[in-house]
């Protein structure tokens, strides 16, 4: 007994508790990720996978057709992200600020109503909005007609110049609940004594929001930006359910996710190309990795945190 107590105790429970998460995460995330990276260095030549090094990446960036599709998708994806950053997050913050106001009645009802679209399936959202905006059966043209603004209506989803923005705004409508909830929680966690101290110093109303509350919720805004970035560059479902895999009109709504899908799985007469698909997936991974690193190492370190 005395001998065994001298040995360092094996803390097996750590391993046991970590095991489920580590195993599942490795099996469904890490292995496929490395599988994809590996696949992008191979190409099928006469039904045999041949190691080609960076050849697939060269094709993607320097073949005029592949690179045109890729840059188009990346450009569209960036625009998709910009709309989210400029519309979704400010609206989310605004809604949270309004909801956290003590004078607002029925706050929880609004909160629930605004959050509900987030839990809806993409298919429902895509199909529902397609119907709403349909020039033939949609309510959008009839509502505009009722207020005499029919000339403002256009078949938005079918026009190259509007389709992507329209879809971005649909996505904003769906997901505005997430920044709202996170900011709302951050606002509620600001202690009352800080607010009271600000009031004693004569900082009230709008300037109280800008000078006291906003600096305190900046870390949450940073997290939201990163979440938006990751979600947007991984997006696929909404575009696919509303516009199909060809991301029409004329690839105007093609983002990296749909480009990847079309390449990897093929489309109609086009046969899937797993190597080029993995190449695109690897680039998506690198883009997201770069974005997240930029946030972690550059932005987050400069954010000042306050201890309450």
């Amino acid at each position: 007994m005395s001998i065994s107590s001298e040995k360092p105790t094996v803390r097996w429970h750590i391993g046991v508790f970590l095991a489920p998460a580590v195993l599942i995460y490795t099996a469904v995330m890490i292995l496929p990720l490395f599988g994809t990276l590996q696949l992008s260095f191979f190409r099928m030549i006469d039904r045999e996978a041949v190691f080609v090094g960076l050849e697939n990446f060269r094709t993607l960036f320097f073949d005029p057709r592949w690179s045109a599709s890729f840059w188009n998708a990346l450009g569209n994806n960036t625009w998709f992200f910009i709309i989210h950053m400029l519309v979704q997050n400010p609206i989310g913050i605004l809604l949270a600020a309004i909801l956290s106001s003590p004078r607002l009645r029925l706050a929880s009802a609004y909160r629930t109503a605004i959050f509900i679209p987030t839990i809806l399936s993409f298919v429902i959202v895509g199909f529902g909005w397609k119907l709403i905006l349909s020039p033939i059966w949609g309510v959008a043209p009839s509502i505009l007609d009722a207020v005499g603004l029919k000339m403002l209506f256009a078949p938005w989803l079918g026009k190259e110049e509007y389709a992507l923005t329209t879809l971005s705004l649909i996505s904003v409508w769906q997901f505005v609940g997430i920044p709202m909830m996170l900011i709302y929680a951050a606002l509620l966690s600001i202690p009352d004594d800080i607010i009271e101290a600000a009031e004693c110093d004569g900082v009230t109303g709008m300037s109280q929001f800008w000078k006291v509350k906003l600096p305190l919720i900046l870390p949450s805004i940073g997290i939201i930006s990163v979440l938006t970035f990751v979600a947007n560059f991984n997006a696929f479902d909404l575009i696919y359910s509303a516009q199909g895999a060809l991301a029409g009109p004329n690839y105007a709504t093609d983002i990296l996710g749909t480009f990847l899908y079309r390449t990897f799985f093929g489309f109609q007469l086009q046969i899937g190309d797993a190597s080029m698909g993995s190449t695109i997936a690897s680039i998506m991974f690198l883009i997201i990795l770069a974005g997240v690193c930029f946030y972690l190492f550059i932005i987050q370190r400069r954010l000042r945190r306050y201890q309450f």
Binding site: S134, P135, A154, P155, G158
Partner: peptide, 16 residues
Amino acid sequence: LGDGFEAQTYPDSQNL
């Protein structure tokens, strides 16, 4: 083609 044919889908056309 009908008004707004740019956003008209295949089932829309069938139904019209």
